[in-house]
């Protein structure tokens, strides 16, 4: 493994931990919001979309594991959902021209919708509870908006960083 790959690995790992800490410790402390943008999902999406399916999957898997270890009784649930999001965003990479900002944001919202839909089905529909209207407005919508804003702010710098990291330095 060459030196620049180790550097890329460390930078990516630091980004994931930073996103997790921001999401769970800093943003959830801001009382008047009460909601936090799903930064790990944003990061997974951008990596999958700007790099490749493999990188998207790996980032999704590990950030999902982080969520599971801290907040979920079932280990592997978030990991599986984020893994799929990373994979699919990697597929989209080859379907769309990636320098445009509108399409990635739309796809990011779709990914977030997928995450919430899975949460809703797994934790509520299976328990025969269907208060979808309430969940849609009070649970999903605020987080949607925040995740969208986070994507808007983060997409350009993070994807620029990813392209920068992908450059192989001249020997």
């Amino acid at each position: 493994m060459s030196l620049y790959r180790i550097r890329n690995f460390i930078i990516t790992a630091v980004l994931v931990v930073l996103a997790f800490v921001l999401q769970t410790t800093v943003f959830s402390r801001i009382h008047f919001l009460g909601y936090a943008p799903n930064l790990l999902l944003v990061l997974t999406f951008i990596y999958g979309y700007s790099d490749s399916r493999i990188v998207g999957m790996l980032i999704g898997f590990f950030s999902g594991l982080l969520m599971d270890v801290f907040f979920c009784d079932v280990i592997g649930y978030h990991a599986l959902v984020f893994l799929l999001i990373g994979f699919v965003s990697g597929i989209w990479n080859s379907l769309f021209y990636s320098d445009d900002l509108y399409i990635p944001l739309l796809l990011l919202v779709l990914s977030d919708l997928f995450y919430h839909a899975v949460c809703f089905v797994v934790w509520y529909v299976l328990k025969a509870r269907f208060e979808l209207g309430y969940y849609l407005i009070r649970v999903m919508l605020p987080e949607f908006l925040l995740t969208f804003i986070a994507g808007l702010l983060l997409y350009k710098p993070v994807s620029a960083l990813i392209y920068k990291l992908k450059e192989v330095p001249e020997q």
Binding site: T24, S28, Y35, A36, W123, R138
Partner: peptide
Amino acid sequence: VISKDSGKWFSTFT
């Protein structure tokens, strides 16, 4: 309390 689940689906904290 050092962190809270950011989403609203769960109300767990560490």
